[in-house]
Design a protein around this nucleic acid. Structure first.
Lengths: 125, 125
DNA sequence: CAGGTGTACTAATACGAATAATACAGTTGA
DNA sequence: TCAACTGTATTATTCGTATTAGTACACCTG
């Protein structure tokens, strides 16, 4: 099963949307280690886009170590998803730090930020 | 004085960079109400880009109520910067909420987020 | 009135994403 | 064995849009 969706009207290139979509599936646990991705041609058919665009996305994912491809067999999620998830968490924390920085510089009260977090914690239970 | 800088190599359109730059100057207090912006032609000369690109940025800024333009005189920061700053804070809080949401979904401990905020608070003193 | 300002318009250019059309080599399963 | 799948590679073309280019007009200021 593939949860890969794209929005052709988005300003974000389709191949980048695919990359993000696969990454999301990995970090959310929807796709697990060594699980096969849809083939270049079948996914192109599903999404009604050109196979070359899919290939470009898969190539980049392979370059980043998110997937590995075997000619004749297919493309698969990397065996080591732990490091992918770790990288993902690091990126979120880094983004979060930058945003909190900007918030404080904009004069947003730290209490407001804290309560926002508490609310989010409630939702995620 | 103008703190407007652009990176022609960025994937972000130059006119959007200018828009963001002006907004930043307003919310950071570098530019205040009714202060004149550099003229379309002079800024184009400074940044070595086409005047049309500057005009496009200024037009959009005017549409958003960030600046107002007077033919023959120039372009100026809006008189009411308070609402601009409010909008900015709201956007930050909204972004922050989304990011915290994603962090919690990624299994990041809430304590880690809190300590991150405390650290940032220290830095901003 | 000269020289600055914003504004408007059309055309041309540049760049990158996406498509299109093939071709080749490896794997798989009937 | 071989048809049908897989990834990979290559080249050319299309397309959208940001950017440039050039020009013109009306307004304001000293």
């Amino acid at each position: 099963m593939s949860i890969i969706v794209v929005d052709v009207k988005s300003r974000i290139p389709i191949y980048e949307q695919i990359i993000a979509s696969v990454k999301d599936s990995v970090v959310s646990g929807l796709m697990t280690a060594d699980e096969p991705l849809p083939s270049v041609r079948s996914l192109a058919g599903e999404l009604a886009i050109n196979p070359n665009t899919i290939q470009k996305a898969y190539s980049e994912l392979e370059r980043q170590g998110i997937v590995y491809s075997v000619p004749g067999r297919g493309s698969f999620i990397a065996s080591d998803t732990a490091s992918i998830e770790r990288q993902h968490r690091e990126k979120i924390l880094s983004d979060l730090a930058a945003l909190v920085d900007e918030a404080l510089k904009s004069g947003i009260d730290i209490g407001e930020i804290k309560s926002l977090i508490e609310n989010k914690k409630e939702e995620n239970n």
